[in-house]
């Protein structure tokens, strides 16, 4: 008895759905531009397992009512059957008119999951109680749907397969609300693309080719802005003028004064000088360096074949570099 109750009751009936119906539908799908509205004619509907069970229940009741010539039994049976039929239309209405307004995603590295943010909108007064959106080729999880009233955000994780722009796979928009007897679904192939940075090489394999700015290089000197930034241990080669003599008796080891400017290290990353087995491996290594350098105050630039991104810092720069790496060699 327990086994029976444990069975998943909301799965679509049998294995029909994965079969010829989907194939037939998929042949007619073309990419759609967002915002996209669910078309009434493109909504498909089938009973769930629970729905089939409910149908069997009605059938058993019908036979019982016939056998006992029981009018109230007939009334209940017909009421339940009618509830089933009506709820089919309600389930259908959950989807019709629903709008997928936008899909946004932050770029991620290949190998990581991108969090897609889907904004779903509903017109009218139909309470949309359980909209599920998932990729058509992944088995549906039992949750999480959204209640769309009147607009909702939904998250979906997507693992891009290759660096550069990745088209989104087919999405299923489905609902079993309100009764769970039927499941309506439709497909959408959004023309949204997700940018994937190259796969990150393992950290610490080889350090980025950083070099400190030479004293004589005037290009990045900022006159009048020498600000004392702190002390660090003396390293052989430091200028004697920089030694912080006052602290010497206390610390026993010489300390060197550090200044914010003039000490700005910089780093040029060059595809041609990057070790790696193949292009993708080298791009991965570069991506790793970009990510690592973005954490430091080092200004870095990038040379990719004939293209060059100048020395800079900051998140926008990091993105510029990574997306250049992502799309390297892909723009025909």
């Amino acid at each position: 008895m327990r086994g029976l109750f444990r069975r998943r009751l909301t799965k679509p009936a049998a294995g029909i759905r994965r079969g010829w119906i989907d194939r037939w539908i998929l042949r007619r799908i073309t990419p759609s531009t967002l915002p996209w509205t669910v078309n009434r004619r493109r909504v498909y509907i089938l009973p769930t397992r629970f729905g089939v069970g409910f149908g069997l229940l009605c059938l058993v009741m019908l036979l019982g009512a016939m056998n006992y010539a029981n009018s109230m039994g007939f009334a209940l049976t017909f009421l339940l059957a009618a509830i089933g039929l009506v709820s089919m239309h309600h389930t259908h209405a959950q989807l019709v008119g629903l709008r997928l307004v936008e899909i946004a995603a932050d770029p991620v590295h290949v190998g990581a999951d991108a969090a897609l943010r889907l904004r779903v909108d509903q017109p009218g007064k139909v309470g949309r109680l359980g909209i599920q959106i998932h990729f058509a080729d992944t088995p549906r999880a039992d949750g999480p749907g959204v209640t769309v009233a009147p607009s909702a955000q939904l998250r979906l994780s997507f693992a891009p397969g290759q660096r550069g722009w990745n088209a989104l796979p087919l999405l299923t928009v489905a609902s079993a609300a309100p009764t769970g007897l039927f499941r309506a679904w439709t497909f959408v192939l959004p023309d949204t693309r997700v940018l994937a940075y190259p796969r990150l090489a393992r950290a610490g394999q080889s350090p980025p080719p950083t070099r400190a700015l030479e004293q004589g290089d005037a290009r990045h000197r900022q006159p009048g802005l020498s600000q004392f930034a702190g002390l660090r241990n003396y390293v052989r080669g430091d200028s004697l003028q920089r030694i912080h003599w006052k602290s010497l008796p206390k610390t026993r080891t010489p300390m060197v004064k550090q200044f914010e400017d003039g000490e700005q290290p910089e780093c040029w990353l060059d595809l041609a000088l990057t070790p790696g087995a193949d292009l993708d491996a080298r791009l991965s290594q570069l991506a790793r360096w970009v990510v690592d350098l973005a954490e430091t105050p080092v200004a870095f630039g990038l040379r990719l074949g004939g293209d060059q991104i100048d020395l800079d810092r900051g998140p926008a720069h990091r993105h510029r570099c990574l997306s250049a790496l992502a799309q390297f060699g892909q723009r025909a």
Binding site: V101, E102, D106, P107, L195, P315, A316, H319, L322, S323
Partner: peptide, 19 residues
């Protein structure tokens, strides 16, 4: 202002207008 976690430029004002 771009979100801290966001790795890319924030949506431009034009994106918002279109949406």
């Amino acid at each position: 202002l771009p979100a801290h976690a966001a790795l890319h430029a924030p949506p431009s004002a034009r994106d918002l207008l279109a949406a």
